[in-house]
Simulated assay, not measured.
Amino acid sequence: MTHSSRRRLSWCLAISLSLAACSEGSPKREAEAPTAKAQTKPWKPSGCEANDPVTCSTRDYAEAEKRLVSELTLAMERLRACAPPNSTKCHNLDRQAELVTNEQNAWKLWRDAHCDVVAFGVEETSAEDQVRSDCRTGITHERIENLKKIGRP
């Protein structure tokens, strides 16, 4: 097998693995949270009329980031609107908001690092940006669904 054939095979395998890692989820994850799967539909890339797939994936990621910020703001508002204020569940709201903020910051670092690993197999190729953006978009949509649960009974 020639060097170029090995490189092409390696590239194809990396794309396949990267795309699989960003898809709906592994059977293990579904087994761990069967109710979450039933409640939410996994993110799927939207149709895009641009000829460049990177443009589409970048647009989808930017939209997901906007929704993430919006949902985080709503979650914090739900926490602060806790009633009755003297109840056990409303105790120390400032600390709870701080913990959610810390969790969000840690989650973003994890998401970006995870998607860097997913895109590693296609680094320095034309697929790198698209694979990384699609991965981040999919995981961001999962996080949005989790944020919707914060501050709800």
Rank of each mutant, 00 (worst) to 15 (best):
H3F: 09
R6C: 03
C12S: 13
I15Y: 11
L19M: 14
C22L: 12
C22G: 15
S23R: 15
S26T: 15
K28G: 08
K28V: 11
R29L: 10
A31W: 05
A36I: 09
K41P: 06
K41A: 15
P42Q: 13
N51S: 15
P53F: 05
R59F: 05
R59C: 04
E63W: 00
E63T: 07
A64M: 04
A64G: 04
K66D: 04
R67H: 02
S70P: 02
S70N: 14
S70G: 10
E71K: 00
T73S: 05
R78M: 06
C82N: 04
C82F: 03
P84N: 06
P84A: 10
S87Y: 08
S87N: 11
S87Q: 07
T88S: 11
K89S: 09
K89G: 06
C90W: 05
N92L: 04
L93E: 05
Q96S: 03
T101H: 11
Q104P: 06
L109C: 02
R111D: 10
V117D: 15
V118N: 11
V122L: 09
E123T: 09
T125C: 07
R132I: 04
D134K: 01
D134Y: 02
R136W: 01
T137A: 13
E142K: 15
E142A: 12
R143P: 01
I144P: 06
I144E: 04
